[in-house]
């Protein structure tokens, strides 16, 4: 039995196909990461799994329950936190928890226990009586998580839960997730952060409404045979343009202040060659070296392969 099992899932809006036939299997107890560029269809896929949207075709099973036929039952087993804050700002922290608990018919004893536990865990205890609208971004996010956990779901679905959250709150947030994973919860989350993706047990890379690669982060990195030549420099964009024109260095990815160039082996001859090419174009190089492929390299190469 899988926590989530979809087959042939499709959803289009007007003329754009957001999800184009997704077959997904998430094992119980997995931390499943959904990664991909903006507009890849991640949010739509999550909305389909949670039942917020109805697929045009395909099937969804949540712990072996047909989620399309038994929407309410499937809904009770999962907790869903949408990308943007979606709690009632006029209600206090406690009232929000109470409202979401009562929507799931959580018994009073169970509610009190879970509430105290979650408040302590999220460090929201001192703010119980504060209006949700008056919380900081990180606290809002933690309250959102607490509200989705109040009915003790077996499956947690989080849409970019840490986007726009400060680093300290982000670390706290992950500590909470870790502890629930230890309790056997299954988590499906999307994230733009590669370090978060690296923590996942399984990653699905989504692009153009499909999942071309689903694998462990470790195994995924081996999809790129060879190594990455890293060049730190001031003009990564121009460097990429210059290098892409050559026959050997076609796979160049920009990663902030540096570029990664795919090469077959860590040969220092490549470094000298690249320095030479960039020097000819008067592009200053700050630093060079070889590095193992990162997840981002894998994704960029997948996207480029698909475009080609």
């Amino acid at each position: 039995m899988f926590a989530v099992e979809t087959s042939g899932l499709k959803k289009s809006f007007d003329k754009t196909e957001a999800v184009r036939g997704v077959d997904l299997r998430i094992n119980k107890g997995d931390l499943f990461g959904l990664i991909g560029p903006d507009g890849a269809g991640k949010t739509t896929l999550m909305r389909l799994i949670t039942g917020v949207m109805t697929p045009d075709s395909g099937s969804i099973r949540i712990f072996d329950t047909d989620a399309l036929r038994h929407k309410a039952e499937a809904g009770m087993m999962l907790g869903y936190m949408p990308q943007r804050f979606s709690l009632y700002e006029e209600l206090t922290v406690e009232e929000n928890l109470e409202f979401f608990a009562s929507l799931r018919s959580v018994e009073k004893d169970s509610f009190n226990r879970q509430k105290n536990y979650l408040l302590k865990f999220t460090n929201l205890e001192p703010f119980t009586k504060r209006l949700a609208g008056k919380l900081s971004g990180g606290m809002k996010q933690k309250l959102g998580l607490a509200c989705t956990l109040i009915h003790q779901p077996q499956l947690l679905i989080l849409d970019e839960p840490t986007t726009g959250v400060d680093p300290v709150s982000r670390r706290e947030f992950w500590q909470i997730l870790d502890s629930f994973l230890h309790q056997g919860m299954t988590i499906l989350l999307s994230t733009p952060y590669m370090d978060e993706a690296d923590r996942c047990t399984t990653i699905a890379f989504m692009n153009n409404g499909v999942l071309p690669v689903v694998d462990t982060p470790q195994h995924m990195k081996t999809l790129i045979q060879g190594t990455m030549l890293e060049v730190v420099l001031k003009e990564p964009l121009r460097a990429k343009q210059v290098l892409s024109r050559s026959d050997i260095y076609r796979h160049v990815h920009i990663l902030g202040d540096r570029i990664h160039i795919y090469v077959d082996k860590p040969d220092s001859g490549y470094i000298a060659d690249i320095k030479q090419i960039l020097n000819n174009e008067a592009i200053a190089v700050d630093q060079t070296g070889f590095t193992a492929p990162m997840l981002e390299d894998v994704f960029v190469s997948i996207i480029e392969k698909e475009r080609a």
Partner: peptide, 13 residues
């Protein structure tokens, strides 16, 4: 508009 509808949709209400 506030996105709370998503939470209500997921709930059994």
């Amino acid at each position: 508009e506030r996105g709370t509808m998503e939470q209500l949709i997921v709930s059994p209400v």
